[in-house]
Nucleic acid binder design. Structure first.
Lengths: 129, 129
DNA sequence: AGCGAGGTACGACTGCGCTCGTACCTTATG
DNA sequence: CATAAGGTACGAGCGCAGTCGTACCTCGCT
């Protein structure tokens, strides 16, 4: 079970069954979001989700992060508690989706910056071959 | 003297005398910038500079940060090494200015987000009186 | 020259973030 | 039912970031 270690209150209201706790739109804190995006690994995850079509969901393990699964869990928790992503517990697998509308409403253009930067990084890697 | 503790190389080319080392525009790293902006105190500084008119410069001590001057020095160093601000050593005082054009060129809209968030915070504080 | 204010350098402490090992749970598959 | 895979909880190590104390420098003012 995910306990309320975050700063926001535990809301009994959970839209869908298995939805893991996350801050409501108005309580999303810029500091938390920026801290979450400061990590390259988490930025990769966000860029991947943001590049994918609307409503895209993916397993946490499908991002190919070069860390152990415990560390992966940690990163996804940070992303969720910051408000960047929404996660659904399906028992043995967890689906992650970008909170695109919430982020666009609170910090318009921020996701685009992350996407653009990730794209530029990929281009640099290609030219270094 | 400020030594090159940053990741970027020490460029002999310094535009104006007393200009403290800072990364050139193309080497400004998003992770560093986001990490710098993740701190509320540094975000306040950036928001203040971004709200002020173009080319505005201010002493580090004039921001009213509730910390010691050593800590203040630390925060401004982080801001400078991230590429957010430009600093000029005038002997006994240091002038800080926002690298507005560079930031707008690399991460368009980011400063606006910081400004908007700071404005919203101020409004909340006012309604809490 | 002396003093105070602004700033930095260096060192130290403290807390937090990233990492993983171990243990355990849940589900799908054989 | 046994096993493997995805995930989490808990704890530990480690490094870095934020904070300050002490010391020192530079300039403006008296």
């Amino acid at each position: 079970m995910a306990r309320a270690t975050a700063g926001y209150e535990e809301h009994g209201e959970e839209d869908s069954p298995g939805a893991l706790p996350q801050p409501p739109r108005d309580e999303i804190d810029l500091g938390r979001v920026l801290a979450a995006l400061a990590d390259p690994m988490r930025r990769t995850v966000v860029a991947t989700l943001a590049t994918a079509p609307e409503g895209f969901e993916q397993h946490c393990s499908a991002f190919g992060l070069p860390v152990s699964k415990q560390t992966r869990t940690h990163h996804f928790r940070v992303l969720r508690e910051s408000g960047l992503v929404s996660m659904t517990d399906r028992g043995n697998r967890v689906l992650t989706s970008l909170r695109r509308r919430d982020m666009e409403a609170r910090f318009p253009g921020l996701l685009a910056l992350v996407v653009a930067d990730a794209a530029q990084d990929r281009q640099q890697d290609r030219s270094e071959d």
